[in-house]
């Protein structure tokens, strides 16, 4: 049992050493309080204004935490406590028409103000959740995913 967990820790370390951040930052942390982290390529960084967010990053907060991020296309997202949000797709090349923003709200609460991508190509913007998908037509909304009750 101990050996197994040690192995997992070692594997985790190895992956974080070999994994690379996915290209250029797509946004930056602007607000943070309590336990709030940006997890990129298995490496967890305590959130504070200026911390970069990449394609594939995960925003994660604890019971008292919150985090706010603004993306390059001016999309603004904020998460309340006990929240996990991953950024699964991000494409922002307006002059080539390459646009996409797909996030995944695994649990917790989200406040979302859509930006330029939703304005130019609404069909390319969505928020996935465990039970359904939210399609966005240029707007301000909130979403909440409550963890399944434990039996």
């Amino acid at each position: 049992m101990h050996l197994a967990s040690l192995l997992i820790v070692l594997l985790g370390l190895l992956t974080s050493l070999t994994a690379r951040a996915a290209g250029e930052p797509i946004g930056y942390v602007k607000t943070a309080s309590g336990e709030a982290f940006v997890v990129t390529a298995q490496a967890s960084t305590p959130a504070q204004p200026g911390v970069p967010v990449y394609l594939g990053s995960r925003l994660k907060t604890g019971p008292q935490g919150s985090i706010g991020v603004t993306f390059k296309d001016e999309t603004v997202v904020a998460c309340g406590p006990d929240t996990e949000l991953t950024i699964d797709e991000y494409l922002y090349q307006p002059s080539q028409g390459n646009l996409a923003l797909v996030t995944n709200l695994l649990r917790g609460s989200l406040n979302y103000v859509s930006g330029v991508i939703a304005k130019l190509k609404p069909d390319a913007v969505s928020v996935k959740t465990p039970t359904g998908t939210i399609g966005i037509r240029g707007t301000h909304f909130v979403a909440r995913v409550e963890p399944e009750a434990k039996p």
Binding site: A78, G80, S109, N111, V142, R144
Partner: peptide, 10 residues
């Protein structure tokens, strides 16, 4: 449900 998330909005 959203007070904390709204307060954290940049």
């Amino acid at each position: 449900d959203f007070g904390a998330a709204l307060a954290a909005r940049p």
